[in-house]
Computed example of a mutant assay.
Amino acid sequence: MFVRTTYATGDPAKLDEAVRKMTTEGTQALEREPGFRGAGLFVDREVGTLLTGTWWEDEEALRASAERMGELRTRMLSPFATTLTVDNWEAAVATRPESVGEGARFRMVRMRFDPSRADDLIDAFENGALPKLREMPGFQGGALLIDRAAGEGQVGAIYADRESFVASRGPVAVLRGQAASKTGATVRSVEEFEAVMVVSRPPS
């Protein structure tokens, strides 16, 4: 599968209205798109950041939806967003919950890696980090998204509640360091969000 992410920053006071539009008008529009396979919406209300990920069955569906989704994104986010970045990714490894409950949390790690070592990074996540994440209380799902040509990636993980999320910080930091050492990847940032919405659709 392939994923389009949108990262927006703006006035925290205007964030809730953007969330309302994304979870109503935005979700309805996505459900009509061929090849749509799910979405996530994550926010930091204090800072004023909003992150979305939309999942697509294949690269063709991702590209075919780009213009329509771009127009919709501008209409919904322009009152809030003062900066906006859109990226396309290959979903190299993914285990996703069908939905999340109130209080769920999301952690995103941005990284860079040698493009020639993309498969090493995939292996380190799929066979090293992910099995250990699955053993952690509250872990609900995670994914490794990569841009092979650019040597850039994101790891996202969802936890059921704040308690399990906070408890995971230390163990996950160890896993992150081990993976970086093993693959030569460089961690660029670690960000934490409230998980507002997650929807998952089965492949056709």
Rank of each mutant, 00 (worst) to 15 (best):
Val93Met: 01
Phe106Asp: 07
Asp119Ala: 13
Glu98Ser: 15
Ile122Tyr: 06
Glu98Met: 12
Gly128Asp: 01
Glu126His: 01
Gly128Phe: 02
Arg105Asn: 08
Met111Pro: 00
Leu130Asp: 13
Glu126Leu: 09
Gly103Val: 11
Asp147Leu: 09
Asp123Lys: 02
Gly138Asn: 08
Leu130Ser: 08
Ile122His: 08
Gly103Thr: 01
Ser116Cys: 07
Trp89Met: 02
Ala118Phe: 12
Ala104Gly: 10
Thr95Ala: 15
Leu121Ser: 01
Pro115Val: 12
Ala91Tyr: 09
Glu98Phe: 11
Ser99Asn: 07
Arg105Met: 12
Gly141Thr: 11
Arg117Gln: 13
Val93Gln: 06
Gly103Gln: 13
Val100Ser: 02
Met136Lys: 13
Val100Met: 03
Asp87Glu: 15
Glu102Met: 00
Ala118Ser: 10
Ala104Phe: 01
Pro115Asp: 11
Phe113Glu: 06
Leu145Gln: 01
Leu133Ser: 07
Glu102Gln: 09
Gly128Leu: 07
Asn88Tyr: 14
Ile146Val: 15
Asp87Pro: 09
Gly128Gln: 02
Ala118Trp: 03
Phe125Asp: 11
Ala92Leu: 15
Arg110Glu: 15
Asn127Lys: 04
Ala124Arg: 02
Glu135Ala: 15
Ala118Asp: 03
Ala143Val: 12
Arg112Phe: 07
Asn127Leu: 07
Ala124Lys: 10
Ala124Pro: 13
Ser99Tyr: 06
Glu90Met: 13
Glu98Lys: 03
Trp89Pro: 00
Pro131Trp: 05
Met111Asn: 00
Ala118Tyr: 06
Leu130Thr: 04
Asp119Gln: 15
Ser99Met: 09
Leu130Phe: 00
Asp119Lys: 04
Ala94Asp: 07
Asp119Leu: 05
Ala94Ile: 09
Gly103Pro: 11
Ser116Leu: 14
Met111Val: 08
Asp147Lys: 06
Val109Pro: 11
Asp114Trp: 01
Phe139Glu: 06
Glu126Gln: 12
Trp89Gln: 02
Val109Gly: 07
Phe106Met: 12
Ala129Arg: 04
Asp120Gly: 01
Pro115Gly: 14
Thr95Phe: 09
Asp119Tyr: 10
